[in-house]
Every structure is written in structure tokens, then in C-alpha cells.
Design a protein around this nucleic acid. Structure first.
Lengths: 213, 213
DNA sequence: TGTTTATGTGAACAAGCGTCCATTGTCAAG
DNA sequence: CTTGACAATGGACGCTTGTTCACATAAACA
């Protein structure tokens, strides 16, 4: 993430602070009021900048839908002075297809420690890890035996996702252009590129790869 | 909270689940789609019911602004089988007036264990406790020496709030009718009722009172 | 000196979205 | 049989909100 200007940092802090207090995100006009801008476009400019610098993410056209790209605001009360920047997450060898998109913790087969900074994922959400079987993603440099850290959330175009196909969870790239239906794509030139999807169940988005050497 | 019907529970679960995955709340039409309703009003009915049963709270007219009334969804991975329903919160004797609405953890003077169930507050937000000085709230049955559990969030009409007046944090009832400016009210008939507010700084909303016997 | 970057103003548009009214049907309680 | 809670359809209204175009200013830069 590039460095933010002072003003951009102020905006970002306000957005985080607002969510922390209210449980939902501010609207653009609420940000405008807070900073006494006379135009909403002042906010738009800063948001565009924050987005370009990968500090935030937004869903175009939808109200109050921010995502902050950064480990979550640390818990404000019990701040361990030198907190270990490591998250302990379960390794699920198998993902049941119960409630759509819901991961069943039953299948835990181990635990994995991941450095927060290296995997840019939000520690507030519940992440899990999957061990890669097969070679469908070798062109994305993900190999058999690697551990993929998956964060449950809706995918966006270009994300590598853990998805349920024929009762099995596989790793694929998620492609969605405009209003066309999404499809999945294996990153291996020897595999068919397109996986048309009747009913797509995405378990989550891959945020990091951990390879034991 | 009254019992929810099966359908209401489904809606509630979806809303929580959606927020958990996306970081923001669903719109009414997104809920509609999920359940294949042919009308948004089906959702409205359920939301009204959930609100009447105090399961959720909403800001009228504002998009994607839910609040779930219940201890947060338990962390899905490390679920202790018999988790203690107790939250450990700091006791702040003094609240500095640095960043507006931000509590400085520096002034911690102790810790307090509170039963989650008895205090209906969300454990995800950062709560703190204040020891009551003075008798301005005796008519609300809050007495000197009591511990008040405060949750940082924006107040609504009728809430008892910890507010900053003349550099001191006091406990008052927050009154806001329609578009009129808000004011604070002491719950002691020997005190002046109205506290007009030039610049109001509310530290948070009181969610529980703990009295050591 | 011209150009980019950061920061704003001002006004307007259109889609997203919450809300409301009128109606229908089911089912259990009184 | 009637009443009321529950569940849902269908259509419409209007505020909320994200977005965009045109334009202005100061600082940094080459």
C-alpha cells in the first residue's frame, strides 16, 4: 500500500472509526458533513485515491459498502505491547456442503500459524486453510501440498477461490465480466480453461499461500 | 427477546451471515432475492417483526444499516464447548477528551467481569466501565459507586449516555426529538432537567449497571 | 514555465433502496 | 365461525446515495 496523504489518512480513520461505533459504514454525504466539505465530490476524490492506493475497496453503486484493506483496527482495550502478528487458523482438509458458504469446523485436521502482515487478510473474519491437492493451479504457482489460506467472502473478478464443484472443493480463478454469469478457470494450460457453473458455491477467497520447505 | 418464528430466524441468520462474509449489511432487495420473494414487502414484514421483537435495530430510511441485538455470532472456529459467557472489560475512572468519541485506554484503573447475557451488549465492540460519582441519576436507580458498562456508539433518543460536559464525563439521559437539537437530562428531580448542549460529545451508551453488594 | 498531483466547489442525474398501500391466503386460537 | 398472527404478492413513490461533468486553486516537479 502506498503512503497516504494526511487528508487521506484522516478520511480513512474516520471511516474506520464510524464503523467501529455504528456497526455499519458511513455514506459519502456523512463523510462530507464530518469534514465540512461543500461538495460530495471532495469525498469522491479521496475515496478514489484511497482505492487506487489499495487502502479500501468498494462496491460500485452500492451504498455503505466499504472494505478496509489492512489488518483490522487492533482491539483498543487489551493492547498487548508487543503482540505477535500471527494468526492461528484451522486447517480443514475437507469442507462439507451444508449451509451454503458455511464452513463446517468439524473437519479440522490441524492448525497453521500465519504471519498477518504477509497474508494481507482481515483477522476479524474467520479464515481457514486448505491443503492443495492436484495441479490445477500450477500456472498460478500454487502446487500440490501447499497450504492456501482462505477467507470466507464473496469473490470478485480475478480472485482465486475455493469453490464447490461436483461435491469437491477445488481451487480456481473466479471470472466475472459485467453482467455475464461467472465461471471458473483452472490455471493450468493442460486443463480446460472454462468451468461453466450451474450453481456456484464459493467457499471463500484465497488470500495467501504457505509452502513448507 | 421474544421467540422468533422459523422464517424470522432464517432471515436473521442470513443477515448475520451476509455481514460476516461481506463486512457490510445486505439491502432489502438482496434479502428478497436470497429467499426468492416476489416482493420487497415480504422482507419488510419480517424486518418489522424482528424489530418489534428487539432482535434487530435499524436506522429508518438509511441503506444497509442493521444492528443485531444479541451477543455477536460466536467465533466459528475456536468454539469452546462450554464458553464462559463473561466479558472482561476495563474500568476507566477517567476519560480523556482526545479524539472525539475515542476512549483512551491509558486511564484504566481496574477490570470488571460482566455476564454477557445480563448486559445485552455486543461483545465485538469495545466496551468499558465507569464508576458512578454523584447522584444525578438516582431516579433511574443508578447510585454512587455503581459500575456502569458503556458501549461506544452513537446515542438514540432515550439512551442513558456517558457524555462530556465541561471537561467531565457525566451520566445523563439523551433526548432527541425529531429534528430538534439533542439535549441531556439528569434523572434526579432536584437537578435541573435540561442541559442544552453547544458541542455534544457522547462517549457511549450505558448498557448495564453492576452494583457490588 | 508548463504539468501533474492533491484538494476543493457546484450542480445535476440516475440508480439503489427503504417505505407504504391495497390484497390474498393459511392456520391455529377463542 | 370469526379473529388475529403469519406469510407473501404487486405496484408505486420518493428520499438516499453513488456518480459524473465542468471548473478552480495551490503546491510540487521537471
Amino acid at each position: 500500500m502506498k503512503d497516504l496523504t494526511k487528508r487521506q489518512q484522516e478520511i480513512l480513520t474516520f471511516i474506520e472509526h464510524y464503523e467501529w461505533r455504528n456497526g455499519y459504514w458511513p455514506s459519502i454525504r456523512e463523510i462530507q458533513e464530518k469534514f465540512n466539505f461543500k461538495s460530495t465530490n471532495a469525498v469522491m476524490g479521496h475515496l478514489r485515491a484511497l482505492e487506487k492506493k489499495a487502502a479500501i475497496e468498494r462496491i460500485p453503486g452500492q451504498a455503505r459498502t466499504f472494505r478496509i484493506h489492512r489488518p483490522d483496527t487492533p482491539e483498543r482495550n487489551e493492547l498487548p505491547e508487543n503482540a505477535t502478528e500471527v494468526v492461528d487458523i484451522p486447517v480443514l482438509g475437507d469442507i462439507a456442503a451444508g449451509y451454503p458458504d458455511r464452513v463446517e469446523p468439524a473437519g479440522e485436521i490441524g492448525r497453521l500459524q500465519v504471519d498477518i502482515a504477509s497474508a494481507g487478510f482481515s483477522n476479524r473474519r474467520r479464515s481457514f486453510a486448505l491443503q492443495v491437492r492436484g495441479d490445477s493451479m500450477v500456472d498460478a504457482e500454487i502446487y500440490e501440498g501447499d497450504m492456501v489460506v482462505v477467507e470466507p467472502r464473496d469473490p470478485r473478478d480475478g480472485d482465486i477461490v475455493a469453490a464447490l464443484i461436483d461435491g469437491e472443493t477445488t481451487l480456481k480463478r473466479y471470472i466475472k465480466k459485467g453482467n455475464e454469469p461467472p465461471y471458473l478457470k483452472a490455471e493450468n494450460k493442460f486443463y480446460p480453461e472454462l468451468y461453466p457453473i450451474n450453481e456456484l458455491t464459493v467457499q471463500g477467497v484465497a488470500k495467501a499461500v504457505v509452502r513448507s520447505l
